[in-house]
Computed example of a mutant assay.
Amino acid sequence: MQDFWPSSGFSRLQRNPRGWLPPTDDYLRLFLGRPELALLPESCAAEQALHADLQATPVRSVSEDQLLALQDADARESYGLFLRFRDGLLDAGTLEAYYLGLFRSGSISIPPLFIDLLAQAIVRNLLDDVTDAYEVRAAEMLFRPQRISTEDGQVLAGDRDRLDMLNDHGGLGDFGRFLAEAKAPLRSIEMQVLSDSNAPDYWPASERHSFLLDLTHEINNDLSHGLVLTMTRARSGLKALARVLEKWVQHFLGVAVTIRPLQKVDDEAWRWHVGLDIDATALLNDLYEGREVEAERMQRLLSLFRLDFEQPQEMRADVAGKPVYLGLMMNADRVLRLKPQNLLVNLPLRAPV
């Protein structure tokens, strides 16, 4: 077993019998230490008192008057958002129940940051016994936006915030330079493509989000006479992502599925699809409805996947046994914002009896 993502707060949590994560005081204290709520030299006395009270008892009630006593408007807003998040989390009973309830309700009342932090802790939980660095690196995509580069037929995903920080601070310059230097020894660069040779280095560096992930598809060679030879990429980021998404569905929904990357959908009976991000959802909807799609949009499609239920009776009766097609796509700025919640609310599940 490997330790990774210490800032996720997983070490402050414990599983219930279902394997889900009830919130703890220590987990809530993690949020109080974040920059949005941490005290500043100029914090007023009322804010210092509120922060100390919440540090001592994170679940204590806070009155409207206590919030209004904060002199800084940004501080009032930040504490208000935290308390809304905290109360919803406590009412739901587990991180998973709160996360799932948010998206099933259709009303998101907390900032995206809180959603990403929830997803990170949940994914950290379901990957606790994983020793494959590719799978854990792929799981970062569920809560951290990625910048995508396509160079010489290779598709690489890098942590957007990490790359932007390096670029803003002079670092190695633009993304092309990161890719050009990605084959250099680890000490001489900030970013490397994850490979078998450097995979052991991922674990102590997991918090820095400094590894690029290869999302290039397998290569099919046509041998004529109807034969196709698949040149398998030994360590595919797409396959690793598929394994993570399988675990994600099983963990939340309790249904077993298999997911595998596809290069195209060749199915005249295509019945159901789910976009893994906003752009893929729109593209798949247009393709399904037979609308013409611009070449530029199609080129931003990174991968398709086929999802199959291991038990077709767990699907809606009208699509039982049919595959579900998934899409993964970068936006016009070459950023991928994966939305794993789409798999939780849009799969064709059988209605509860």
Rank of each mutant, 00 (worst) to 15 (best):
Q250K: 13
G170E: 06
S8H: 01
A75P: 05
Q154F: 12
L347A: 13
P23M: 12
L287N: 11
P35A: 09
A180P: 07
I108P: 00
H209A: 07
D159R: 05
Q2T: 04
P112N: 02
L186Y: 12
F309Y: 10
L245K: 08
V345C: 06
E135A: 08
R306C: 13
A138I: 10
W20C: 04
V130K: 02
E314D: 15
A269K: 02
S105R: 12
T230P: 00
A157I: 04
D201T: 06
P261M: 04
L118F: 02
V193L: 12
I219S: 10
L117Q: 10
R334W: 05
Q192C: 03
G9F: 04
R177Q: 15
E289A: 03
S109L: 13
L276A: 03
P323W: 05
R104E: 10
A138P: 06
P58K: 07
W248A: 00
Q66D: 07
P58Q: 13
V335W: 03
V257E: 01
A242Q: 08
R300L: 02
Y98H: 09
D279A: 11
F31M: 14
E190H: 12
A119G: 07
G226H: 08
A320V: 07
P185E: 06
H225A: 15
L343A: 06
I148H: 05
G226Q: 11
R86V: 11
S188G: 14
R187K: 00
G173M: 08
R124M: 06
R187H: 08
G254Y: 03
F175S: 13
G254M: 02
L67V: 08
S61C: 02
E36F: 00
Q66A: 11
Q299N: 13
M330S: 13
L336P: 12
E296V: 09
M315T: 03
V130W: 07
L118T: 01
T232H: 08
R144N: 13
S303I: 04
N285M: 12
T232G: 03
N346C: 02
A45F: 01
Y134T: 08
T57Q: 15
S188P: 10
I278N: 12
Y79L: 02
E181R: 14
V228E: 14
A242S: 15
N16Y: 06
L227Y: 10
T94K: 02
A45C: 05
P352E: 12
N346D: 15
K322Y: 14
D132A: 07
D3T: 12
R233G: 07
S11T: 10
M330G: 08
N167Q: 15
L127E: 06
E77H: 11
C44H: 06
L276H: 01
L81V: 03
D308N: 03
R124H: 15
R235E: 14
D318H: 04
A180F: 11
L118A: 04
S61P: 02
H217Q: 13
E140S: 13
D74F: 08
S11N: 07
A133F: 06
R177S: 14
M165A: 15
R337L: 09
L166W: 05
L344G: 01
G327T: 01
A38N: 14
R34I: 00
L166C: 03
G275K: 10
N220E: 15
L67W: 05
N220C: 05
D129F: 15
S195K: 03
P352K: 15
A133D: 04
T150G: 09
A45S: 07
L328G: 07
T230C: 00
L307R: 10
D25Q: 14
L343V: 01
L117P: 02
F305N: 01
S149D: 05
R160G: 06
G321V: 04
